[in-house]
């Protein structure tokens, strides 16, 4: 990481800490803000958050590793999460899965070469009555079939 990048990141985290406060309860909001902007929370960012919140870096690491929606490695610009829980599975998740993989040429857990899309599974989205469900960034799509899924993916920039 370049020094300039580091400084910019530090400043950004500082303003986040000023915004959300130093309470331990603010940690998640700060981490989510970093995740939203950078699509990952780097080692350096974790240590900077710890320094500014006066906690230990390993505590930040513990929180980051606990939540699936926070990650330490860079991902694609858009994250597509397909629900893998039983209701969606029975409603035809597998077909959607296969089509999506074929369409993008990557497997679940991978990112397209142009960094456009990362495919992931997620646990229950609470859309059991409208499965299969898929989360694109922060938007939920329900009652998918292979065709609608591909249409949705094609609309993503």
């Amino acid at each position: 990481m370049l020094v300039l990048e580091k400084n910019a990141l530090s400043e950004e985290i500082e303003s986040l800490v000023n915004q959300f406060g130093k309470e331990r309860s603010a940690l998640l909001q700060i981490l989510q803000a970093i995740q939203r902007k950078h699509k990952h929370i780097s080692d350096f960012a974790q240590q900077e958050v710890a320094r500014m919140m006066e906690i230990h870096p390993v505590e930040v690491n513990s929180v980051v590793s606990f939540y699936s929606f926070l990650c330490t490695q860079p991902k694609g610009r858009n994250i597509v999460r397909l629900c893998q829980t039983i209701s969606c599975d029975m409603a035809g998740k597998e077909k959607v899965e296969e089509t999506v993989q074929r369409e993008l040429g990557i497997k679940f857990g991978q990112t397209t070469k142009d960094k456009r899309i990362t495919l992931e599974f997620t646990n229950c989205l609470g859309m059991c009555d409208q499965g299969p469900a898929m989360l694109v960034n922060e938007k939920v799509y329900t009652k998918l079939d292979p065709e609608t899924a591909i249409n949705i993916l094609n609309e993503i920039k």
Partner: peptide, 25 residues
């Protein structure tokens, strides 16, 4: 490590069945 000595090396990493006590990264 975290509270008694305030050094902060060990903490629980990951979740559920994967949980283990680990160091930073």
């Amino acid at each position: 490590c975290i509270d008694f000595q305030e050094v902060g090396v060990l903490e629980a990493i990951d979740r559920g069945h994967d949980t283990h006590v680990g160091t930073f990264l």
